[in-house]
Write a protein that binds this DNA or RNA. Structure first.
Length: 165
DNA sequence: CCACGGTGGTAGA
DNA sequence: TCTACCACCGTGG
């Protein structure tokens, strides 16, 4: 099930499975989604979508998220889910480096793999992959465009010493 | 600044 | 299996 979200920053696209929110795309991001059918959204999906919309707009405004729909992370591997869970613990306005995050899930040497897991994150913004920086406070990468990463961090007031354009 | 080796996980052949 | 990627990190010119 595919539904759009209009924001001041463009139109995001959310995909829902029977479990919950499965994917969120940035505006103009053509990442393929798991669209199953075009039946009308069930009452449950509409409830989820309203939560997603509210949460996304809060994030874009740099505000704290109060509630989230259930997330369908079954597309990821165990390792990727560990990483995603780990980064959901990073608070608003805080950042962690890839190596700190690797240490947080008890795999201090799996640093590069953590980077890979961030890129595989199907639900950016709500799973705050943008709060993960490289070691020296450098920006690192971002699959859907570095400008978004900068923008999100700036909106929530995260410290950005070096921007490494 | 750049080059390089050591890493762990993933996708594809 | 084996191999070639990586949103990394430290060290060393």
């Amino acid at each position: 099930m595919k539904l759009e979200i209009e924001t001041k920053d463009g139109t995001f696209v959310a995909y829902y499975s029977t479990i919950g929110l499965a994917q969120l795309n940035f505006p103009d991001d053509q990442r393929p989604g798991k669209e199953t059918d075009d039946a009308p959204a069930s009452a449950q999906v509409r409830t989820w979508h309203s939560l997603t919309t509210k949460a996304l707009k809060a994030m874009l405004a740099g505000k704290k998220i109060t509630s989230l729909p259930p997330l369908d992370l079954t597309s990821g591997t165990d390792f990727q889910r560990q990483v995603w869970n780990g980064m959901r613990k990073i608070n608003l306005g805080r950042t962690k480096s890839y190596s700190e995050l690797a240490a947080a899930i008890a795999k201090p040497k799996a640093v590069r793999a953590v980077g890979g897991a961030c890129g595989a994150n199907p639900i950016p913004v709500l799973i705050p992959c943008h709060r993960v920086l490289a070691a020296n406070q450098k920006l690192g990468g971002f699959s859907s465009g570095l400008p978004w990463k900068r923008k999100l961090l700036a909106r929530e007031g995260a410290p950005l010493s070096l921007t490494s354009d």
